[in-house]
Nucleic acid binder design. Structure first.
Ligand SMILES: [Mn+2]
Ligand SMILES: [Mn+2]
Length: 556
DNA sequence: AAGGGCATTG
DNA sequence: TTCACACCCTCCG
DNA sequence: GAGGGTGTGTCTCAATGCCCTTGC
């Protein structure tokens, strides 16, 4: 068994035939060392047993774990480094890690068999029926489950089958280990090899054993439960039983957030199915932004205007996000008007508009057409949307983003700190954040940004889309945009990274010759400014930054 | 026979 | 296997 | 104008090979 020090989670050398096994064991060992108290005795036992099997058997197991699904055919397990797969399988079965005699349902079987095999299965099940071999496999895959036969061993489906089937019974444990390692279920075992191959790069951050994604087993359980629930929701299961499966409040903020998000999604589905009462129940007391708004919208439709108006007022007392406030205020406006006591609408900041009439194009996006048009007027325009300012922000504050803050990093494949969107993100890195703004003040920010750009290009970062950040773009931007503007923009970003990283204008237009720039949001004939886009435009105008809304009409 | 879709691989 | 954005529809005053 | 739903592109690695479909 590998007993590497904790600091050495390193992908295995690819010249090693068992490289993937080494990677898998690195993951398992890390979890066993960092989370021993979150594993049941039974699970410890299972892992110990697995790790005491011969390498070939372990390797075969992980070959399957890393492949799709949990069902496998014995004839599709041929690997050069595993010369006796049958023997390995027997050892795995002995250890209870795989199930040889599991009952297989029609759907599973039909996806495991090839078309000509599927025909044979049907023939052997219903010898009297003659099936046209011109049927498409898709049709057979519908046909077989339609008979509603119970799950049964392969031998009962197809006695003459030229292979056997097996199911990984350790999959729940493997998923749990993966979850405890990554802190999520969307990253998988391939992270290791992709990193070793150089297809992806992560910023190294020093970690100690205190850094772990979960502190209690119940948290892991809750994550898994929420994940399964979301899965069922997406699969279109009956909504009623799902509602009953929603766990009560979660012990940690991030899990509670996930729970509320799911409650909202569930509520939304229920609402669309027509059950407004359940929807209201799921939205009520849900601090999730969309939930609050849906709640008020439902009130607006079903309750009195007075009650809605009051509820909206109440919500406004609790909500500070500008975007949410705007939408709540609209509801308040409408209800107030409806109840006969209209509120004077807030005066909106006027946004400079530019009307352009262009030739329509079926291959080019409207933004590109505007860029071309601006070029004839001496502007060099780039379609950057959110990526420019969030990118510059990340480049300047790179040391803060990847500071080894407690709890922010717990495995080597993170594209950003776990608390990136938490309200106290800044507080936990105050000195480094201050340092970034100091560089903006003393002029060092340009070299800092350009250096990080070259040094880190390609390194995964939650705030950076590298292809957008061409060096010439960044150089010109740094030449044209004054530091005070960048400073104001970055401070605004930091107010609410999650929400403020959205809604920035489509184009930045640079005129290096005149050291000037402007921002342009392009709107085609069928598009309008969204709330968060308007908020950014207002912000820029407040700051004295030129921002224009460009309305495009098409020549007929 | 050709090409799309996909799973697998390092 | 998301997320941000654009596009398209309906309804309303 | 506003709310709502849906579609689209995406930096979710690139190369390979199997299976299936379609067309000749
Ligand atoms: Mn845009
Ligand atoms: Mn636009």
């Amino acid at each position: 068994m590998d007993t590497q020090p904790l600091s050495a989670i390193r992908p295995a050398d690819l010249s090693e035939p068992f490289y993937y096994l080494h990677n898998a064991r690195t993951l398992l060992n890390w979890v066993m060392q960092v989370h021993p108290d979150l594993l049941l005795t039974d699970e410890h036992q299972q892992l110990k047993q697995l790790l005491s099997l011969p390498d070939e058997a372990q390797a075969l197991l992980f070959r399957m774990v890393m492949r799709k699904g949990e069902w496998f055919r014995s004839d599709q397990l041929n690997y050069a480094e595993i010369p006796q797969p049958t023997e390995s399988l027997n050892q795995l079965a002995q250890a209870g890690l795989i199930d040889y005699s599991a009952h297989c349902d029609a759907k599973t079987l039909s996806s495991l068999c090839r078309k000509h095999e599927l025909l044979q299965v049907c023939q052997s099940l219903w010898p009297e029926q003659s099936l046209d071999s011109k049927l498409r496999k898709r049709d057979l895959q519908v046909l077989l489950p339609a008979y509603d036969l119970p799950a049964q061993p392969l031998a009962d489906w197809w006695p003459q089958a030229p292979f056997t089937l097996l199911r990984l019974s350790c999959m729940p444990l493997m998923d749990r280990m993966r979850l405890m390692f990554f802190g999520n279920l969307h990253q998988d075992w391939s992270e290791f090899v992709l990193t070793e191959l150089g297809h992806q790069r992560y910023e190294p951050v020093s970690m100690d054993t205190h850094n772990r994604a979960f502190s209690q087993r119940s948290e892991v359980d809750l994550y898994l439960q929420l994940h399964q629930l979301r899965q069922k929701l997406e699969d279109g299961n009956e909504l009623e039983p799902l509602h009953a499966l929603l766990p009560a409040a979660c012990p940690t903020d991030w899990l509670e957030n996930r729970r509320q998000k799911l409650a909202f999604a569930l509520g939304h589905a229920v609402e669309r199915s027509g059950d407004l009462t359940t929807a209201l129940a799921l939205y009520r007391d849900n601090p999730h932004r969309e939930a609050r708004i849906r709640y008020l919208r439902l009130m607006e439709k079903s309750a009195t205007a007075e009650a809605t108006c009051l509820a909206a007022e109440e919500a406004l007392d609790q909500v500070s996000q500008p975007e949410a406030r705007i939408r709540i205020q609209r509801i308040q406006q409408r209800s107030a008007k409806k109840s006969g006591r209209p509120i004077k609408p807030q005066s909106k900041t006027a946004i400079p508009q530019l009307e352009l009439t262009l030739e329509p194009s079926d291959s080019l996006r409207v933004e590109t057409l505007v860029i071309d048009d601006l070029q004839t007027q001496g502007w060099r325009a780039w379609h950057v949307e959110n990526q420019l300012f969030t990118g510059l922000f990340a480049l300047l504050f790179w040391p803060a983003l990847y500071a080894p803050v407690k709890g922010a990093f717990f495995h080597p494949f993170q594209s950003g700190p776990a608390d990136l969107y938490h309200p106290d993100f800044v507080l936990k890195r105050q000195p480094l954040i201050d340092a970034g703004f100091r560089q903006l003040a003393d002029g060092q920010y340009r070299t800092a940004i350009l250096q990080t750009l070259e040094q880190k290009r390609g390194t995964r970062c939650s705030l950076i889309h590298w292809p957008t950040l061409e060096t010439t773009l960044v150089e010109q931007v740094l030449a044209c945009i004054p530091a005070e503007h960048l400073s104001a923009i970055f401070r605004h970003l930091l107010l609410d990274l999650r929400h403020h990283r959205r809604g920035m204008p489509d184009l930045i237009c640079l005129s290096p010759a005149h050291n000037s720039y402007q921002l342009i949001e392009v709107k085609g004939p069928n598009d309008r400014l969204q709330d968060h886009q308007r908020l950014w435009m207002e912000f820029f105008i407040d700051q004295g930054i030129t921002a224009t809304l460009c309305q495009v009409r098409f020549q007929t």
